[in-house]
Amino acid sequence: MSDAYFARQGTLFAPLPDARGSWSHDSIHGVAVCGLLGHAAEQALVGHGRAEDLVPARFAVELFAPPRYADCTVSTRVVRDGPRICLLDVELTQDGRPVARASATFVRASESAPGEVWSPTDRPTAPSTDVAPVSDVPQMPFVRSGEGPWTQEFASHQNGERHSYFHVCHPVVDGSPLTAFEAAASSADGVNMTTNWGSRGVEYINTDATLSMTRLPVGVEVGLRTLDRTEHAGVAAGAAAVFDREGQFGVVVCSSIANARRTVDMATLEDDTV
């Protein structure tokens, strides 16, 4: 059985079992949605003839309606095409109804400016290869609480500490090799789990995810570590560092709303859909 999130059927993308969501059995989880939107954006860039001279800088997703576990259609539009930038819009629909959209910004890389600018020295690092051997096969993510050990035992990380996780990304579309950009795009939705996972599970659902990146990940292993979180009256804002085996390559932020009546209990997680 394929471990991809979708199977392409003509102009439609049919969800596969690994795309099924945790909030509802009749839903597609946000990682799969972000991955499909990223896949469409990258394919549009290729079709527009700009894939060779531009690199991704920003991928922003809005998740404004619950996607059902049903066929999806994606459409793309070039918003701006200039010498140093290309901006694409992507929309995901089901039965003619929009459920999510994204904007992707691709820019021309050059050289770093000579001036000195502050940046933190406390950068996230991937688990050692002794704990998590290098792999391109999707599996249960490795999770870390605070500065403790990396493990795949989710129940031991159901706490109020700072969370990190590291995983091998799933292919987005069956029969289509996973690209580095698709790996980064699908991982963006992991900001909700990383920043909102607490002692009772994940009690917030994100309405968006915005990934800013300075390079593509090396390989298809991507990790996130919480940088900041604030919450008032059921509205939360979270930020996470995004990294791979080589180090940090971006930051992702999200807005979330309380969803305590349908909490995802991470301690009972038995698959690798996050």
Rank of each mutant, 00 (worst) to 15 (best):
106 F>I: 10
106 F>P: 01
108 R>P: 01
108 R>M: 07
109 A>P: 04
109 A>E: 08
112 S>T: 08
112 S>L: 14
114 P>A: 10
115 G>N: 12
115 G>P: 03
118 W>N: 09
119 S>C: 09
120 P>Q: 13
120 P>E: 14
121 T>G: 15
122 D>F: 08
122 D>M: 04
123 R>N: 11
123 R>C: 07
124 P>L: 11
124 P>G: 07
125 T>W: 00
125 T>G: 10
127 P>D: 05
129 T>P: 01
129 T>H: 10
129 T>K: 07
131 V>R: 05
131 V>D: 08
131 V>T: 13
133 P>K: 09
134 V>L: 08
134 V>E: 15
135 S>Y: 08
136 D>P: 03
136 D>T: 15
137 V>L: 06
137 V>P: 01
138 P>Q: 07
138 P>I: 05
138 P>A: 03
141 P>L: 13
142 F>P: 00
143 V>W: 12
144 R>I: 05
145 S>N: 10
146 G>T: 09
146 G>C: 07
147 E>I: 12
149 P>D: 13
152 Q>L: 06
152 Q>E: 06
154 F>M: 05
155 A>I: 04
155 A>L: 02
155 A>D: 06
156 S>R: 14
158 Q>L: 08
158 Q>G: 00
159 N>E: 05
161 E>N: 12
162 R>S: 11
162 R>C: 09
163 H>R: 06
164 S>Q: 11
164 S>L: 06
165 Y>R: 01
165 Y>M: 08
166 F>C: 01
167 H>N: 09
167 H>G: 08
168 V>N: 03
168 V>D: 03
169 C>W: 03
171 P>F: 11
173 V>M: 08
174 D>L: 14
175 G>H: 03
176 S>A: 14
176 S>R: 07
178 L>F: 08
179 T>N: 06
179 T>H: 07
180 A>G: 04
180 A>Q: 13
181 F>G: 00
182 E>V: 01
182 E>W: 06
183 A>R: 08
184 A>R: 04
185 A>V: 06
185 A>T: 04
188 A>G: 02
188 A>T: 05
188 A>L: 05
188 A>W: 01
188 A>F: 04
190 G>V: 04
190 G>F: 00
192 N>K: 00
192 N>Y: 03
193 M>E: 02
194 T>I: 10
194 T>Y: 03
197 W>M: 02
198 G>A: 11
198 G>M: 02
199 S>I: 07
201 G>E: 03
202 V>F: 04
204 Y>M: 11
205 I>E: 00
207 T>E: 02
207 T>Q: 05
210 T>N: 07
210 T>A: 13
211 L>V: 02
